[in-house]
């Protein structure tokens, strides 16, 4: 990139290009930058170059601690540098820097334990997204007691915002030696009391929840549950309500117990004392 040291735009584009990509730049640096008592112009610019890589790699390490542990720091850092070169930050926040890392890893050849690595990357991305999502009100299962039986089929369940559904080829949430063996894994990643958690579910339960998340009425959603017993389905809903996975339930007509509204919600922001750190 050609440098005109007298023009601000040219200086900025050239500097950024060197900071991101390096290369031979001693002559340009000498024209652009004054030496200090101890450092030559290019050495002074290299301070910024070194900090750029360090800062972005550290941000990715923070978002993907499991991958760091799985791959080791050296390999993770090498991958992170390649990723940042391909996908530089275009946001005012570093929180979104790693959003495309799973997609990037899907194209990288020669990864150790590639299937598990990719599954873990997808899980850790889901966790950071869930961590940052808006807090939702939580629907109470008590609402269901007021819904007439003939209206159950039309119920629509709206999941909380801080929730993602994952179909993985490995149980990445059980990050241990055993988890390295392939196993179809279905996870609901969600946030409860500001802590990120995951719930492993069967394929029929996953299919049912996906249908609900798409806005389908209960009758349609249950059809996706592929011959699940009614008692199983009741059990799933009991768990899901218990974990606060729905922010609202809507009936076609108001339930008898609360005729004046079509949804029931309760705020569940926890007390500070009961709120462990992420």
């Amino acid at each position: 990139m050609r440098l005109d040291a007298t023009r601000l735009g040219s200086v900025q584009h050239w500097m950024q290009s060197y900071i991101r990509e390096g290369g031979a730049a001693a002559d340009e640096a000498a024209a652009l930058i004054r030496p200090s008592r101890a450092l030559a112009p290019l050495e002074r610019l290299d301070i910024y170059r070194g900090m750029y890589e360090l800062r972005l790699v550290e941000a990715l390490r923070a978002d993907y601690p499991g991958l760091v542990r799985l791959l080791g720091e050296d390999l993770f850092d090498e991958l992170a540098r390649l990723y940042v070169a391909a996908h530089p930050s275009r946001s005012y926040t570093l929180n979104r820097l790693g959003d495309r890392l799973p997609e990037y890893l899907a194209r990288v050849e020669g990864l150790p334990k590639p299937g598990f690595t990719r599954a873990l990357a997808r899980l850790e991305l889901a966790e950071t997204l869930v961590f940052d999502e808006e807090e939702s009100l939580h629907a109470s299962a008590e609402f269901l007691t007021g819904v007439p039986a003939d209206q159950w089929s039309g119920l629509r369940f709206r999941p909380i915002s801080a929730l993602r559904l994952l179909r993985l080829d490995y149980p990445a949430h059980l990050f241990a030696d055993a988890a390295l063996r392939p196993k179809k894994t279905r996870l609901i990643v969600y946030r409860r009391d500001f802590a990120v958690a995951s719930l492993s579910v069967s394929e029929p339960a996953m299919a049912l929840f996906e249908a609900l998340a798409e806005g389908r009425p209960l009758s349609d959603a249950v059809e996706r549950a592929d011959r699940a017993k009614e008692s199983e389905i009741f059990g799933w809903f009991r768990d899901w309500f218990s974990e606060g996975l729905f922010q609202s339930v809507e009936a076609a007509q108001p339930p008898r117990a609360s005729a004046s509204r079509t949804r029931t919600t309760r705020a569940t922001r926890p007390s500070a004392a009961a709120n462990p750190g992420p």
Partner: peptide
Amino acid sequence: TGVAGINTHDLLPMP
């Protein structure tokens, strides 16, 4: 902090 839509997330100096 950056140009061409990129953010280096560093406080880069001005001439």
